[in-house]
């Protein structure tokens, strides 16, 4: 059994389960930490509004921003920001 394990590892270049453990932890902690700290998303939202508003006029009341599991081994920052109008000239 040990020999088989060894051979399959050598042949498949298996990383070992520790990489899986680490990746799973990193993903789950992205969500844990964001839900423990709701201010984080609020502050991010404020900053995003500031940047985007320099270029576009956006509908603040309909704006949504969240951390979502992107399926598989990713976490995605998902934002839905309805645009009312494109600014003609960039405000400095």
């Amino acid at each position: 059994m040990a020999l088989l394990d060894f051979l399959s590892r050598v042949l498949n270049r298996d990383e070992g389960s520790k990489e899986t453990a680490k990746q799973r932890l990193q993903l789950v902690l992205v969500q844990d930490r964001a839900s423990v700290n709701p201010h984080l998303l609020e502050e991010l939202k404020e900053d995003l509004i500031g940047v985007i508003s320099r270029y576009l006029e956006i509908d603040l009341s309909a704006m949504e921003i969240n951390l979502e599991s992107g399926g598989g081994d990713t976490v995605a920052l998902v934002a839905n920001i309805p645009v009312r109008q494109v600014r003609r000239s960039q405000q400095k």
Binding site: G16, S17, K18, E19, A21, K22
Partner: peptide
Amino acid sequence: VKRREMMDIED
């Protein structure tokens, strides 16, 4: 840890 089946201190 040596067999990469457990997270190491650095991990």
